[in-house]
Nucleic acid binder design. Structure first.
Lengths: 147, 147
DNA sequence: ACAATCTTGACCTAGCTAGTCGTGAATTAT
DNA sequence: ATAATTCACGACTAGCTAGGTCAAGATTGT
């Protein structure tokens, strides 16, 4: 498993915030309930996302969290690397291609290709895209239900 | 990290065996030395690869391990799945696309694409390709040295 | 003052990774 | 037979990471 729940939960939270942009701060408890995330764990993820500038938090009654950037200006790649650290699929991808360690590995070149493709795809996808996709899905579900 | 050392070491071992095809059994100790793998750990990996039919082992003096299939008939995908189990990059990729769990995740569709591409690439690459690549690398290194 | 909210850091547990080790079984050489 | 060689298999372990929980404090609105 390349991604832990951090990457999953953290992105869920950003999607939730993106959907409620312009409605004032959204509270931790709300996000946790809607997206099915343990509240006290979500804490850590919000803290990380705040440190890296993806959201702003305000305390006190009526406080909560808001996106600090436009949803279409946050790529999946940067968010996941913020939450998970490096996404390298295997250790030797980090070694210099000509190095002994790289050569010993034997699969290095294959995984470097895969890694590059993966990063490109993640860099092209933004939080806004994820929100759009979710809205499409909701519309479809609503249409099914109305029949 | 998607792959542990199992996938790395196991493939190294298969490359080593492929390079010595036709020379009789290769001993565990030799593989371990050449490929820098702890010998007693390599044991486990060879056992797994044997169980899944990639190699044959013979005991006693002069014994060792040999490939049970042609190197170009062993894909990286099958070997890695034998050694590592499923290669899904994140949990929700396994959920049904229309399901609640899949929808909650939000990134499912992106990672399903990435996963498909990754598997295709791994299925197209065989142990023989890895051996070829290593031989090319060796020739280049030899040419550099001779200057 | 008091209640609502976020902030921070300490803490915990289960399971996984990357091994090691010891015993035993098969095969061959003498 | 017996010794030497090599694989076979399972038990065991230390350290790390994932996925949390919890308590105490800071900030703000009423």
């Amino acid at each position: 498993m390349l991604l832990s729940t951090k990457g999953d939960y953290g992105v869920r939270a950003l999607i939730d915030l993106a959907k409620h942009t312009g409605e004032g701060p959204v509270q931790r408890a709300e996000i946790a309930r809607r997206r099915k995330i343990p509240e006290s764990y979500l804490d850590h993820l919000l803290a990380q996302l705040r440190r890296d500038g993806y959201l702003r938090s305000t305390r006190g009654p009526g406080g909560g969290h808001e996106l600090a950037k436009a949803p279409d200006d946050i790529t999946l790649l940067e968010v996941l690397e913020s939450l998970e650290g490096s996404l390298v699929p295997m250790e030797c991808v980090n070694e210099a291609p000509g190095s002994d360690a790289g050569a010993l590995c034997g699969q290095q070149w294959v995984w470097q290709d895969i890694y590059t493709q993966m990063r490109e795809r993640l860099a092209q996808t933004t939080i806004a895209d994820l929100v759009d996709h979710e809205r499409d899905h909701e519309r479809q579900a609503a249409a099914m239900y109305s029949i």
